[in-house]
């Protein structure tokens, strides 16, 4: 009786629960082991890399880290990338300089559409070279408009004529519709102008507003940055940007080791991962150390100008004071800090 009794569960379900928990624990253990194994496999068999990957999974958003944690994260990345690319890779973490707000100006009359800036940017910023091929600068070939004498007085604001920005010059409108894949023998071509677009480092950036995890944010020196580790790859920012400035790593980036630029910044040109979004940062790793951005240096016609908007003697402020300036899609109130000017 007692024997039989003992076989019968006192409270129905207890035995089941026991098995359940044990099974659950066993399976959880197994799956954790599988995951760890998979993580090791995924990131290559090197132990250091696996350890770094493991630590990166539990890493906080860069903006919320303490200085110590930031240093740890940077040290981890230096270790990982040095091993991955077979050379000494430095990851800079220098913060924004005091009393500096970066601005950019591009002489739209001088640009010849040679795409030197596009490729200089790729060399500097460690973009994926192929499959996917990512480029942060886009140059659009557009038809020149015509000058209509009848519109001479239809200036803006009214009655001030062409001198204050009259619209006698009829152009195609702010459509950004033109040719992206033009490939003539030589540039510039007659009757066309070239419109390079890249991240405008908006003062009120719409991409920052939509980011659900706040991995993209505006730094005090005005540069909109991305914490690639914190990015979940939802690509909301890409659709929010009116300037088509952001790119997504649609696959595992392909960056040949010999072409990799070893001078990197955490928020700038360090190698990205599959799924992370990236964009122009005015070459954060260079400009925070006093150097011109790569595209400014590369431009063979000197159409690109860069400087501190808070300094009245800077190139950008002089251009704003002296030249005819317009902004792209200014009516969207994003307050871009990238200006187009004409002589």
């Amino acid at each position: 009786m007692a024997d039989t009794n003992s076989k019968i569960p006192d409270q129905p379900g207890e035995k089941d629960n026991g098995t359940n928990r044990r099974d659950f624990l066993k399976e959880t253990g197994l799956s954790v082991a599988a995951l760890t194994g998979a993580a090791t496999l995924l990131t290559g068999s090197q132990e250091a890399e696996a350890r770094v990957t493991w630590a990166e999974w539990f890493q906080k958003s860069y903006r919320l880290m303490t200085n110590e944690e930031q240093k740890d994260a940077i040290a981890r990345l230096e270790e990982r990338h040095s091993q991955e690319f077979g050379k000494k890779v430095t990851v800079d973490g220098s913060p924004a300089m005091k009393d500096v707000l970066f601005g950019y100006a591009l002489n739209i009359k001088k640009c010849i559409g040679c795409r030197t800036c596009v490729h200089a940017c790729v060399k500097e910023n460690n973009q994926s070279r192929y499959n996917p091929e990512l480029q942060w600068i886009r140059v659009i070939k557009m038809e020149k408009g015509e000058f209509l004498a009848a519109n001479m007085d239809k200036g803006y604001p009214k009655d001030y004529g062409i001198e204050v920005g009259g619209n006698a010059y009829e152009n195609a409108g702010v459509t950004l519709e033109g040719e992206h894949y033009y490939q003539p023998e030589t540039v510039p071509e007659k009757d066309y102008f070239y419109f390079p677009i890249q991240c405008m480092q908006c003062e009120k950036p719409p991409c920052v507003k939509v980011c659900p995890v706040r991995s993209t944010y505006r730094e005090p020196d005005g540069i909109v940055v991305i914490d690639y580790n914190w990015c979940i790859g939802c690509r909301m920012c890409i659709s929010a940007c009116p300037y088509w400035a952001r790119r997504s790593n649609w696959g595992e980036p392909n960056l040949p080791a010999e072409e990799m630029n070893p001078k990197t910044h955490y928020l700038g040109n360090r190698p990205r991962m599959n799924g992370a979004t990236e964009k122009c940062t005015f070459c954060l790793q260079r400009v925070r150390n006093g150097r011109y951005p790569a595209c400014v240096e590369a431009c063979p016609v000197g159409a690109r100008k860069f400087g501190n908007l808070l300094d009245p003697d800077s190139e950008v402020r002089k251009i704003l004071a002296r030249k005819g300036v317009f902004r792209l899609k200014a009516e969207l109130n994003t307050y871009p800090k990238f200006f187009y000017f004409i002589d």
Binding site: V164, G165, N171, G173, V174, G324, E331, Y335
Partner: peptide
């Protein structure tokens, strides 16, 4: 957007900006 023009900013607009 296509109906809009690239309009140069006035001196005042630039200073305000």
């Amino acid at each position: 957007m296509a109906q809009k023009k690239y309009i140069l900013m006035t001196k005042r607009e630039k200073e305000d900006l």
